[in-house]
Design a protein around this nucleic acid. Structure first.
Lengths: 196, 196
DNA sequence: GTAACTGTACCGTCCGGACGGTATGGAGTC
DNA sequence: GACTCCATACCGTCCGGACGGTACAGTTAC
């Protein structure tokens, strides 16, 4: 069996080979989980290492600085967003419906990292803000291509962003809204899309 | 000339008398401004005191702990939200239009403190989350009263929350959306509200 | 034998908070 | 109306702990 450098492991992951979770993956997941649940402040290196079941030395072996951790999370998001955009563009239901439908909280890896990066952006982390800019820009472009009326497209974008807003916010009211019928919401999207 | 205790000064503020900005007000504004611009992490007591033009000791005189600062910001938000809800209920254009129209970034005191509390909530600050729950619950109730179709009401709520999402996010893409024509967006709201 | 860790010990900085001052300006007393 | 007393409204410094990061000597698994 070949030995693998950290980089080789990373490449293998990017190429889609599924592998048993390495320490590096566990650390990244733990960091994202802490960001989501308790915010940037609580996502310390010690806490991340503890949650990942790894020593601090082990964490620093993979990520030499906290910023490296943040960069890796952002990179993961951009990778996932790239794939999501392709699915969105090819969706038979149309980009607008796809966008709104997938904006609801599903326990996907994509959402997990999206929410993590939102928390980073809330701390004014410039690369996180830039990454969100890029992701939203892609979505907006695809929705605008799908929806003839630009004002309807804008309203649909906002609905999706409202759902993301809910997904990144803890609290009770989010459940009452997001938990409701997606089908009915998609009908509203259709109504906006079709014009009057 | 009457003497005023700190409590009397506070009461005067609550009762709506306009007074020259006291140190307490300046500290609160500074703290909210730091939360908005750079997030919870950067809104330290030292930074707040410096921005308010007050010594650290002076800050701690008015707010004995950092949590007291957060509580005061939340209280301010709830006060402002109370007044906003009353205006929303009485709005001739209807609650739905009022809600969406005022969800765009205006440089009001209300928005300033709303964004500050969102940043606190992003740090999993429980009272901040509860306050946002309450504010959003009021809005939702009023919009549901205004819009016959509950699914349309939900879509309208989400549009407003999408706008708030933009307002709390730095970055370039927010401008292209939020800066666009509010009138056109309100037309979309009308279309949702009227049903098909 | 090398990559992938563990575990510990340590450093400098920052942050929240405690604390001891100080200036001011009434209130009460005679 | 001078004197004491005291509350308000601050200032400036110090401390303990947490956090990011360094260093490095061992250990395990392939």
């Amino acid at each position: 069996m070949m030995s693998m450098t950290a980089e080789a492991v990373e490449n293998a992951r990017v190429e889609g080979m599924s592998r048993p979770p390495t320490a590096r993956e566990k650390i990244l997941d733990a960091y994202a989980a802490l960001l989501r649940s308790d915010g940037e402040r609580a996502a310390t290196m010690d806490a991340t290492a503890a949650l990942a079941g790894v020593s601090k030395g082990g964490l620093l072996y993979h990520f030499p600085s906290k910023d490296a951790l943040a960069e890796a999370v952002i990179e993961r998001l951009l990778d996932a967003a790239q794939q999501d955009s392709e699915r969105m563009e090819a969706a038979p239901e149309g980009a607008a419906r796809y966008y709104v439908r997938t904006s609801t909280v599903e326990e996907t890896e994509f959402d997990s990292f999206y929410q993590a990066v939102v928390r980073l952006a809330a701390g004014a982390h410039a690369p996180a803000v830039a990454a969100l800019d890029q992701v939203h820009g892609d979505w907006e472009r695809l929705v605008r291509e799908d929806v003839a009326d630009p004002h309807a497209a804008e309203a649909i974008m906002l609905i999706g962003e409202g759902l993301y807003y809910h997904s990144t916010m803890p609290g009770t009211w989010s459940r009452s809204l997001v938990g409701s019928d997606i089908g009915a919401l998609l009908e509203q999207v259709d109504r906006l899309k079709e014009g009057h």
